[in-house]
Design a protein around this nucleic acid. Structure first.
Lengths: 112, 112
DNA sequence: TTAATTTATCGTATATTTACGATGAACGAT
DNA sequence: ATCGTTCATCGTAAATATACGATAAATTAA
């Protein structure tokens, strides 16, 4: 009888499958419109720098930097250092994997 | 010059497109492994009641109820009252719309 | 009517998220 | 060597998310 049961707000992610946890994490990264917008900006517009993205969003530089960090955390984007600048781009590998897992989920739970 | 600029932690979701905001909200609902698991349970297992789901998850009844509420909020599931019970089921319509929008996003941002 | 069942909600605690300005670190240019 | 540019990080504040037990509400069964 230890105290491990006595806690709050700690997600019991260990209790779920790796895939479900991973997919939930990807979904979390996509759970803010700014981050969805950033993914689109990185592919549609011909920009990659944080500063360029800041100009296209109604958010401060530090906030955009945080969103980029979150997208990078789950591997949806990559950042390549170019002197004082950083060139961000989408990570096709992770995006493909995410698409695959989402397709798997939707084919299970809906008539898609 | 009003004070509207002086705030914290308020997502400027008005500044984004309706679609991006909606998709981000769907992603938010999918951003916890328990909720992904619940969607699967509602389709794979032959159960629909909150109590049944509770038995299949390492979470308390009140917590599961909250997760169901979140899924219901964005319309990914529906709840039909059957006496003191509630029979939950996935909402195919919303799921299809979500799948469509996600496909659109992925076709834009990755070679999928 | 009372008891049992089922679920939502309340109250509470903690962690995380979102946002900003300020600052620091890294690099290129002068 | 200094200055400007770019970005990440720090510090901070408020909102939201996650979790639980306890309780209330609703309905069925006895």
């Amino acid at each position: 009888m230890n105290d491990k049961e006595n806690y709050m707000a700690i997600a019991k992610t260990e209790e779920f499958t790796k895939t479900d946890t991973w997919l939930a994490d990807i979904a979390k990264a996509l759970s803010h419109p700014a981050r969805i917008r950033i993914l689109k900006i990185l592919t549609e517009m011909n920009v990659c720098m944080c500063g360029d993205i800041v100009e296209l969003l109604p958010l401060s530089q530090s906030t955009v930097s945080q969103h980029l960090k979150e997208l990078k955390r789950v591997g949806l984007i990559k950042g390549e250092i170019e002197g004082p600048k950083v060139c961000y781009c989408v990570n096709d590998e992770t995006l493909q994997k995410a698409k695959k897992e989402l397709d798997k989920l939707f084919s299970l739970v809906c008539s898609c």
